[in-house]
Each structure stands twice: as C-alpha cells, then as structure tokens.
Simulated scan of single mutants.
Amino acid sequence: MATTETADEYPPAGACLTLEIWHPNCWTLEVTEATEASLLAHTVYNATDGRVKGHFTAYGDSLAAVTDLIDATRSSPLTDSVVVMQRRYGFDEAGSVPGNAARELFVEYDPTNTISDALASEGFIQESAVRIRNGTEYWSVFVGDTDRDRLHDRLETVREKGSAEITVAKITTHDAFNTETPGRVALLSTRQRDVFELACEHNYYAWPREITTRELAEKADVSKTTLLEHLRKAEAKLLDPAIEEVSQPL
C-alpha cells in the first residue's frame, strides 16, 4: 500500500538571506568604522545584571590595526568591559579569519543596542558568525517564509524597531521539497564540506574548543596542514560577504 507523506516529514520551506545592516548606538559598527580592523561576532552569553558578554574575534592586516580596534572598544561609552584572550597572533591552528593578526575578545555591553532581538522577533534565525567591517554588519539568516511581500514587511518591522538601515545583499529560496543544500554550504567542494561538518560535529568551533586540530586531522585521516587548508577555504566561502552577493529589491 502506498503511504502518504506529510509536510512534517520534510524540512521547512524558507529563505536564506545575506543582510547588510547599520543601526545606531552600536559599538561594533563604530569601532570597525574608526579603525582598519574588523570583527567576527560568535556567541553571546547572558549576564545576571541584564548585560551580555559577547565572544568576538578582532582581525586585521597588522597587529597595530587590531590593537587600535581593541583600544577603541575599551574607550567606547557603549561597552562595559573588554577581556583580551592571550592567544592567536597571525595564522595558527584556528585559521578561521583573514588577515595577518587576530585576537579573541570577550566584551560586556548593553543588549538593547543590538539588532539581534529585532531580527529574532521577526523570525530571522542567525546561521553563522556575524562579520562586521567598515561600519557595516553582515548577517546570514534563515526565515521560514518565502513570500516576498511578507519578507519585505518583516524587514520593514526590523528597520522600524532598530532604526536600522538594511540591504538584502543576497536571497535564496530553500524549498521544502528540494534536496539540494541551501545557502553557502552549496559553494563548498565535497571534501571541504566533509571536513567542515566533521569539525562542527566535534565542536571544533566551540568555546573552549573541544577537540584539537591534530585530533581532528586524525579523524579526517589527513595531515594537519591539509585539514587547515580545507577549513580555511570552507570558512572563506561561508563567511566572506563579498562572495556571490547580488543586491535584491526587498
């Protein structure tokens, strides 16, 4: 007897968007506009006093540029505290950002000056680390809706809530009945995707990291150098906002 498959057996239909965002009173936008370094925003931890502590990577073409950004972050009236982790100058095992120098930061600040709550309230789910450079945030988000008019209305609501300027740099539809990989993961080679998914499976990108690069290379049955090459190429495709971005009238 033939069985009838229901919609619940399929992944939800939706859209993957790359958003370029500016909004007022944001320390990340101010410090990246004022210096020659950039930021990656990873994870946010809620504090008991209502503040949040975010994990960021500051990176740039030189140590001086990264230091300038850290100094600007510390002096910003929009931040409460800045802790710099004593690790990672230049390229090392992490290999997840461009540039020649990088430092890990924990920054405590007021969450009311972020755009994340406004995005989440309209159903936009963050898919990867947010890249901030030259005074602009680059968000990769998923939303369970494919109707252009409704998406336009949702983004208008976010703009109003955050007094934000939002440009849709790229939009792709994720069809519930389409088995192709949506979004930027489709840009990866088979080997890059296998290694990247293995790294995610073993919490290589967790903080603190739960597996070393050498251990991950052994699981992937490749040398550490080869593993890092695959990961760096995959991360560049997944995180670089300049890749295959086409402005959309949304």
Rank of each mutant, 00 (worst) to 15 (best):
186 A>H: 11
141 V>Y: 08
62 S>Y: 10
232 R>D: 08
184 R>L: 09
241 P>V: 14
37 A>Q: 03
239 L>A: 15
65 A>S: 11
150 R>A: 13
128 S>N: 09
228 L>G: 01
234 A>I: 05
26 C>M: 02
61 D>E: 09
137 E>T: 00
102 A>P: 03
175 D>S: 10
207 W>G: 00
137 E>C: 06
204 Y>D: 01
168 V>S: 00
226 T>Y: 10
184 R>P: 13
142 F>W: 12
102 A>G: 08
229 E>K: 13
37 A>P: 01
36 E>W: 00
166 I>Y: 11
168 V>A: 00
82 V>A: 13
95 G>K: 03
158 V>D: 02
231 L>M: 08
68 D>Q: 09
223 S>C: 01
246 V>I: 14
192 Q>K: 07
182 P>I: 06
166 I>F: 06
114 T>L: 07
74 R>D: 05
58 A>K: 00
38 S>W: 05
190 T>C: 02
16 C>D: 13
26 C>H: 07
113 N>M: 10
176 A>I: 02
122 E>R: 10
206 A>N: 14
152 H>M: 06
30 E>T: 08
194 D>L: 04
35 T>M: 00
214 R>I: 01
158 V>A: 02
177 F>S: 09
93 E>A: 10
172 T>E: 15
240 D>N: 15
95 G>P: 01
10 Y>F: 15
178 N>L: 07
222 V>S: 04
16 C>A: 12
62 S>R: 10
196 F>E: 11
173 T>V: 14
200 C>A: 13
75 S>A: 14
124 F>P: 03
182 P>V: 00
203 N>W: 04
33 E>P: 01
124 F>V: 00
226 T>S: 11
44 V>S: 11
129 A>W: 09
29 L>E: 03
157 T>M: 09
176 A>H: 13
126 Q>C: 07
47 A>V: 08
76 S>M: 06
52 V>L: 15
163 S>P: 02
224 K>E: 15
233 K>A: 15
82 V>N: 12
80 D>T: 14
202 H>L: 12
232 R>C: 04
92 D>W: 06
248 Q>L: 02
85 M>F: 03
139 W>V: 02
116 S>W: 01
